[in-house]
Every structure is written in C-alpha cells, then in structure tokens.
C-alpha cells in the first residue's frame, strides 16, 4: 500500500505555513496515519517527495489506541485522531493539517491550553462529596470519557479560543458534575453551565457525530439541560 502525505507545515508559531509531501509505503493493512507519522519521523534521513531533506514532523501522540486525544488533527478536512484513521481507508493522497481553533506550535502540534483554562473558568470540580447512586453511574461514566482532544471545538461555529462560550469539550465533563453534585449544590454549577455553554450553543449539533470517543452528546446534554436549565433539581 502506498500513500502520499500532504502535510501543512510550519517551522514555528510565527513562521508562514507551507505544504510538504511525503511518500509512505507499507505492507501492513492495519497501519494508521499515526503509524505513518511515527515511521517517517524515525527515518534517520527523512526526505520529502522530491527527494529534498526534511526535518522531522512535529506532532503529539501518546497511547496509539484512541484513548488519550493527543494526536487530534485535521485529516482530509475532518478533525480526527491520527491513530484512529487507517491508511487503507484513505485515498491515495492524505491531507494533514493542524487543528485550526488553537495556536500552532509547529507542524501538526497545537497548543490546547485554552481548553484547560476554560475548564478552570467554569469551575469544573466537585464542591462537595459526590452523591453516587446507581442511577447517575451511566451518565457519569459517559461524561468521564472525554479525551479533551478538541475535535468537537474544531467543527463548532460558535467556539473560538478566548471567547466566553466554552463548547462541547467543557459541556461533556460538566455533565458529570451536574449528575453527581448533591441537589443542594447544583445552583451555582447550573448558572455557570447556562452562562458559559447553554446560552451560547446554537444547538445545531454540528459536533454530534465528530467525537472520536463516541460519546453520546445528545444523551448527556438532555440530562444536563434537565438539571441545569429546566431546574429539575429534585429528580435527575
């Protein structure tokens, strides 16, 4: 199997972007975009398609099995995890770009610090012991699975770094708190949820099918909205 990687590169935050093409060949049908990037970077003498020497491609990865969100990037126009996309399922030329909603560090690495800042801004922590019951377990489990990869923010028309709307990447983890907080503690959390997410969300659900963790966004939001917006504090 032969593929061309068409990579949008940048030497540093300030420098101008350019495209560079790489040839990659493998016999292993199960390899992913992440495998290709890893092997290209491991080459002692990396050359681009025209045979010119190239510096190693900067990108982030950790688990290589869709569980850590590190390798999110735009693959053929769609934000995805590089370790999730099999080369065999791609066309001959695969276009790789960094996520566009975050400042680029270099090549495919972006600085997603704003996601952490947003979670602090919406005070995403329990202020009291969790009220764990059989009933909340499923929602809490689902909400706990968010990888903080940023794919949902990439497609969201209303999210931009530095804005007050914090997007699905904060609404999902927030739904854990809303489900677990003792009823008496929900008021303040509900205010933050409504102000920093619910009011700013266009409900277009452009983000619905994008989550690489397969989190059921609709389900969690229905739950959160019931608690925070419709103030069903008593019966989650």
């Amino acid at each position: 199997m032969e593929r061309i990687l068409d990579i949008l590169r940048r030497d540093s935050r300030e420098s101008t972007p350019y495209r560079q093409f790489f040839h990659y060949e493998t016999a292993d049908e199960t390899e992913t975009v992440a495998t290709a990037l890893m092997k290209l970077c491991d080459a002692s003498d990396l050359r681009d398609l025209s045979g010119e020497p190239a510096r190693p491609i900067l990108w982030e990865c950790s688990c290589l099995q869709k569980k850590c969100g590190a390798c999110a990037m735009v693959i053929d126009g769609i934000p995805r995890l590089a370790c999730d996309v099999k080369l065999a399922d791609c066309k001959e030329t695969i276009r790789l770009e960094p996520l566009r909603k975050f400042p680029v560090v270099a090549d495919l690495t972006v600085d997603r610090t704003v996601m952490q800042d947003n979670l602090r801004a919406i005070r995403l922590w329990l202020t009291d012991q969790a009220a764990m019951r059989d009933k909340v377990m499923d929602a809490a489990y689902e909400a706990s699975r968010c990888l903080q990869c940023g794919c949902c923010l990439e497609v969201c028309p209303n999210f931009y770094a530095g804005g007050s709307f914090t997007g699905m990447a904060s609404a999902i983890p927030f739904s854990r708190l809303l489900a677990e907080l003792p009823v008496s503690q929900r008021k303040e959390a509900a205010k933050l949820y409504t102000g920093r997410f619910y009011n700013g969300c266009g409900k277009s659900l452009a983000c619905r099918n994008i989550c690489p963790a397969g989190i059921d966004v609709d389900d969690l939001l229905v739950n959160s909205n019931a608690i925070a917006v419709w103030k069903r504090f008593g019966k989650p």
Binding site: L119, R120, L124, L126, Y141, S144, R145, P173, R176, L177
Partner: peptide, 18 residues
C-alpha cells in the same frame, strides 16, 4: 468501571486537582 477504570479515575482526579 467497565474496562476503562484508569480513565474514569483520572477524570475524577484531574477535576479534583483543578
């Protein structure tokens, strides 16, 4: 927690650290 125990423990701990 199914077979994602590390993930859910980490989520709870990351939130507490915040």
């Amino acid at each position: 927690s199914k077979s994602s125990t590390g993930k859910v423990l980490m989520t709870a701990l990351i939130d507490e650290a915040r």
